[in-house]
């Protein structure tokens, strides 16, 4: 109860600051962290700082009840939290991923550390509340920080459910998701009409359509942006592996292709967080390290995109 009061008062305070920042329509700058710590960016809705790198769970955490693979996923989560990560994203569509996250959170006693982001994914909106409750039980969290309408499925009714939950304090933030660059027109319309906290979309160094309308609109409307498919589900990494890294790699702060790709995403001022998925502790550390200083500026970002396009 005390904790709830604390959250509410902090939310009000941060919300006021966030509204001030949103009103100025300036892109939120990443907070400069102490050396070695990962950078954060303020959620436009509340001003709450969120680490730039999150953790996706599509495929990687869908391991059933395999004890060896559950232990590996828990190790990934341990490294993620130890490195300063917070947002974990899942969906009822992702098989056993939610239960795997719940297993890890319980093993690590890390419910409080996590920013729990999940989705509602049902074409029968009447089942939405029951699905969300089942998801919550899989995670083992008191409530979700963020609930999103997965791939705009039954978007009007499901969004109505989520907004009512936010109003009732049953979820902190509400959003919508799309991927692979699909249905951007519909996403744009919802962003204009609905009081969203987040939009999740595909954005990376080769999938840049969101830069045209959605990212500027997110800034204008004070909506946080979660970038999914940063590596195009490994396809982008495979495509670039074996290709020469640029001579000026050190300027980007990256040490390899994965960090090069991530730094490009994270340095966009309107991206709140990227959510790469992995099964390997080494990769999660590498991903988190990409969220440290330096981040490329606009000129360097253009150079990075041009370099990859020319390969």
């Amino acid at each position: 109860m005390d904790s709830d009061r604390h959250r509410l008062s902090r939310r009000r305070l941060l919300g006021g600051l966030g509204a001030l920042a949103a009103a100025s329509a300036l892109p939120p700058l990443p907070a400069r962290a102490a050396t070695g710590e990962i950078l954060t960016r303020a959620l436009p809705a509340t001003g709450e700082p969120l680490p730039l790198v999150g953790l996706g769970s599509w495929i990687t955490f869908n391991v059933g009840d395999d004890p060896a693979l559950l232990a590996e996923c828990t190790a990934v989560m341990r490294a993620f939290f130890a490195g300063g990560g917070r947002m974990i994203d899942s969906s009822p569509m992702y098989g056993s991923s939610q239960a795997t996250i719940g297993h890890g959170l319980a093993e690590l006693d890390a419910v409080e550390q996590a920013y729990a982001a999940d989705k509602v994914w049902t074409s029968s909106p009447d089942e939405g509340s029951a699905q969300i409750e089942a998801s919550r039980q899989h995670w083992g969290v008191p409530r979700f920080d963020l609930l999103q309408v997965h791939n705009l499925v039954a978007r009007e009714a499901n969004l109505e459910t989520l907004l009512a939950m936010r109003e009732a304090g049953e979820v902190r933030h509400v959003g919508i998701t799309t991927s692979h660059g699909r249905r951007h027109d519909a996403v744009e319309q919802i962003m204009r009409e609905a009081p969203l906290d987040f939009v999740q979309l595909t954005y990376n160094i080769v999938d840049r359509e969101a830069e045209q309308r959605l990212l500027p609109l997110a800034r204008e409307r004070g909506i946080g942006v979660i970038a999914n498919r940063p590596f195009q589900q490994k396809r982008l990494i495979r495509r670039l592996e074996g290709k020469p890294l640029p001579d000026w790699l050190a300027e980007t702060g990256a040490q390899n292709w994965a960090q090069f790709i991530l730094k490009f995403i994270l340095s966009h001022p309107d991206v709140t967080c990227a959510i790469p998925a992995t099964t390997q502790v080494e990769h999660v550390r590498e991903n988190l390290a990409a969220a440290r200083e330096p981040l490329p500026d606009a000129a360097l970002r253009r150079r990075m995109a041009d370099y990859v396009a020319a390969l």
Partner: peptide, 10 residues
């Protein structure tokens, strides 16, 4: 495809 080869084999 929503799972990896390793998960399927195991």
């Amino acid at each position: 495809l929503m799972f990896s080869q390793r998960v399927y084999e195991r």
